[in-house]
Design a protein around this nucleic acid. Structure first.
Lengths: 338, 338
DNA sequence: CGTTATATTGAAACATCTCAAGGAGGGTGG
DNA sequence: CCACCCTCCTTGAGATGTTTCAATATAACG
């Protein structure tokens, strides 16, 4: 429910107007003079302020001036409601930064229309359509490309052109050290974006992205992606959250790589893969991943992965048949001791 | 230079007005009718649109309607400029979403004031003051607290109350695994924020923050921090960049931890510390850090750190005296082979 | 100036990697 | 349909880097 602060010294007019607004479905907070009105607006952060000009204590111009000065209230739509109908009065009000100027007497429709208009504009400014819509619009705007298994989406040292979105398939992002040893830093599935981190940094990719299976992917050019982010507050929030999640998950992996045994690391890698593929259904989850990729994920040698997997098999935690690994008891894998 | 689109069918008025605006330092693009005006606005994305109402081909209401519908132009301030001075005309214009309504005849000052006002409001909406100012305002708004060496700023499993800013001192953030082995995930110096990642995630801290020396720190409550971020586009950009940098640096450390020898990891940790403390001056840089903290940074045992350090000393790369480590040749440390 | 925290050294235990060689499966062409 | 190849998986055994435990030396602090 939208919150409106109404500042008006005439008791009758204030009560009447408040009633109309309440009937129209707004939450109305009233103040009988400018000073009280400013305090109310600062504390309540309403969605809109309606204010008389001629008032005791602090007049409407003063109210607007004070609210404009405070970053927290500067963006709130402000409507003057006044008997001063002279052109010069109107100009002064607008020049001070009011968003509309209603002269008394006004009828209810005029008032409600004026409010609706300003609320609509304010909403539009913060949020150009809903988040979901924007993402859908964004990704469907650009042509898709098909990548076959093992082909590069982008390579280390290339320059980022934008962000990638996976329509279908699966992509691994990996880095290699000087000796050519590879570590998979992330695996992305259908419906996810990747390449954001490198985009926001200056300079070329430090990561390579390779399709793990046949994948359909589109590229959203830098400009469009950035303007979409900044145009949409909800998208900004979401992206912040995802990035902080990325930081956290990498920190967790750091901790594991530093002090956990290979056995434990492989167990966790499997558990994570199982979770990503099958959810927490409790059912056995089949995972298809090469021993090599698994070793790159756990940061170990392929042979060690193989030995550890056969241990897990002997212990009844997983089943093996070729490249397919079936996870029977994800919980036990999570809680693996060294 | 601010760009203004002026749509007016009367040739004299259009030319005159354009001249005034040009003299006032604006870049002016003109269109003689609504259709041309809309095309111009869509292609040029001006900072403000001034538009007559009574025009051939497409009238001012139509122009406003079309521009409002397009997310790319909806937020551009729109001023009507018209001979229709009736109250009902004025109301209609405002209800359609115009930001101001100037009636002819108007004088130059009125026009320029109206433009200034709307541009100012538009700027204010996107950017509440400059980034630097906002940060300074933000951090000085909250009381500081002094933390002595080795005291906790926050602990794992506590709930985040906000973001911390270091006025002076140094703080390490670390995580521990089940066996109590600790890994330092980041070290923050004076002038830096920390605790952002955990704030943006739901749930308690997964990290502990401990002062490495006597430090003066303030806490910016969640609400204020978030509203500052969203109020200020420049701050958003900066934060995105920093977070993607965080992700990247952690990925680099993952790679090192996975495949590099302890020797190399310690060398890099030293080089990074040296860079952070002394810059790239080429001068020997004295670092004060305990062997234990260094081991937590490199993800290894304290004894190993000690042995490696004395190797480095024998090789003339560093100097040792108690807890003080002097880095002579940071470049050689960076390029250390296994 | 004693007391505690931190740094150092040695030697054995251990996990993991590396190298090397063999085996299973899956697809392709004759 | 079989032989062939290539890729991926598997197993063994020695080499190696790192940790751990334990004992001692040195520095830091009130």
């Amino acid at each position: 429910m939208k919150k409106i602060v109404l500042i008006e010294d005439n008791d009758d007019l204030r009560e009447n107007t408040a009633e109309i607004l309440t009937l129209a479905g707004f939450e109305v907070l009233t103040a009988p003079d400018g000073k009280a009105g400013v305090e109310l607006a600062l504390s309540q952060k309403p969605d809109l302020v309606i204010c008389d000009i001629l008032m005791p204590v602090l007049d409407g111009h003063g109210v607007l001036h004070l609210l404009s000065r405070n970053p927290e209230t500067a963006a709130i739509p402000f409507i003057f409601l006044t008997a001063k109908a002279e052109r010069s009065d109107f100009r002064k009000g607008m020049e001070m930064g009011a968003d509309d100027y209603l002269t008394k007497p006004f009828d209810d429709i005029e008032l409600l229309n004026a409010i609706e208009t300003r609320l609509r504009k304010a909403t539009q400014r913060n949020n150009t359509g809903s988040s979901q819509e924007t993402i859908a619009e964004l990704i469907n705007q650009f042509p898709t490309q098909e990548f076959s298994r093992k082909s590069f989406v982008f390579r280390e040292a290339q320059h980022p052109k934008g962000v990638y979105y996976i329509h279908s398939g699966k992509v691994k992002c990996s880095q290699a050290n000087e000796q050519g040893k590879e570590l998979i830093t992330a695996i992305y599935d259908a419906g996810e974006f990747f390449g954001i981190t490198d985009l926001l940094q200056t300079g070329p990719y430090t990561t390579s992205a390779i399709a793990m299976e046949k994948s359909v992917i589109c590229l959203i050019p830098t400009e469009q992606f950035l303007s979409a982010i900044f145009a949409n507050r909800e998208l900004t929030r979401q992206l912040f959250k995802e990035m902080s999640g990325d930081v956290k998950s990498r920190e967790e992996r750091l901790l594991k790589l530093a002090y956990d045994s290979v056995r434990k690391r492989i167990a966790q890698a499997l558990a994570e893969l199982a979770e990503k593929t099958g959810g927490n259904s409790g059912e056995p989850v089949p995972i298809v991943i090469s021993r090599e990729d698994l070793s790159h994920l756990a940061g170990t040698a392929t042979e060690t992965v193989i030995r550890t997997l056969s241990d897990f098999k002997d212990e009844g935690l997983i089943g093996l048949s070729g490249s397919k690994i079936t996870v029977f008891q994800p919980e036990k894998l999570w809680k693996m001791r060294n």
